[in-house]
Simulated assay, not measured.
Amino acid sequence: MDRTTRQAAVPTPLGRRRFEEVLRDGITARGLALSRVREHLIARGQQIGVSTLSYWQNGERQPTTRSLPVIEALEQVLELSPGTLTSLVPTEADREPRRGKLAGITSYADTVDELIREMGSTSMGLAANLSTIEGVSIGRERSLETKHVHQVVRASEDVDRQVITYQGELGCDVTLLALLPVSGCRIGRVRHHEPTALVVAELLFDRTVHRHESHVFQYVIKDDNKVPTHEHYRMHLEGGGIHVVELTFHPEALPVRVEEFHRRRLEDPDARRRPVPIYHGNRVHLVTEPSTPGISGLSWEYD
């Protein structure tokens, strides 16, 4: 197959074909395995993983403008005209939020997507969770007062921010949910959604975290609503990493029993539930090492 035929197999009318479609057709036309494509890119001085190439061609992730040198080299490897792929790389404003994983575990994924779209953020999915340690305080009114989060992530692409979500109790005043940076980050754009009590926010890292590097950051969520709560949970978008949560109850608002629960989706019945002992009179904890996406959490009851 000559060069002209290969190019004809990959037309690039702007606005009608997506990056992943053109890339997929180009790879097929060249007859190269992704591992061979990667070798050709390395020979041109561009480092990229086979997994990233796979994500790109399947549309599971979108390349950023920071990837343009790699994509220019990719055009050479696939013997495409200059601009065939680079012209299809979405701008920061055009890129779509990375949904799918969130949609698999909660019904309000579309709301989160819309809030992220309003912010124009494109950082979802660029950093994998290695560990998350949460310290949660339940106050005298039986409401969540503060949540201190200590998180470690590893970047799959260069990234300088992380999008987080928090849901208060339904009916609460979302303007009373405050996000405070502690270390390794500062607060960027924030969006609220009153009907679902959702807050979606950007945490801006204090540096650019390059691919394969790790980053440690801490932040606090403060809730002044004083709305009683009876459970705390964490959504795991993928397997891997470790999650630890420790709940501390006010001495005048101790539960009579606490149980851990695990669900496939937030709205599903419990897949597993069992009692959890209360230590030192007012503390409980849960350690989760998720192997698949899902929900893990603690629930409690009062007299």
Rank of each mutant, 00 (worst) to 15 (best):
T5L: 10
P11K: 11
P13A: 10
P13H: 14
R17M: 14
G31E: 06
L32S: 07
V37N: 03
A43G: 08
T52W: 10
E60M: 07
R61Q: 13
P63Q: 07
P63V: 01
R66W: 08
V70W: 13
L74A: 09
L78V: 08
L80W: 01
T84P: 00
S87R: 10
T91M: 04
D94Q: 14
A103L: 04
S107R: 15
M119V: 11
M124Y: 01
L126K: 05
A128K: 11
S131K: 09
S131W: 09
L144P: 06
V152K: 06
V153W: 00
V153E: 01
E157F: 13
V159C: 11
Y166K: 07
P181Q: 00
S183L: 07
G184I: 10
H192N: 09
H192E: 08
T196Q: 02
A197E: 07
R207T: 12
V209A: 07
H212L: 15
F217K: 02
Y219N: 01
E231Q: 15
L237T: 13
L237A: 06
I242E: 14
A253D: 08
E260L: 05
H262I: 05
D268T: 15
R273C: 14
L286A: 06
V287M: 11
T288N: 08
P290A: 10
S291A: 07
T292R: 05
P293T: 03
G294D: 11
I295N: 01
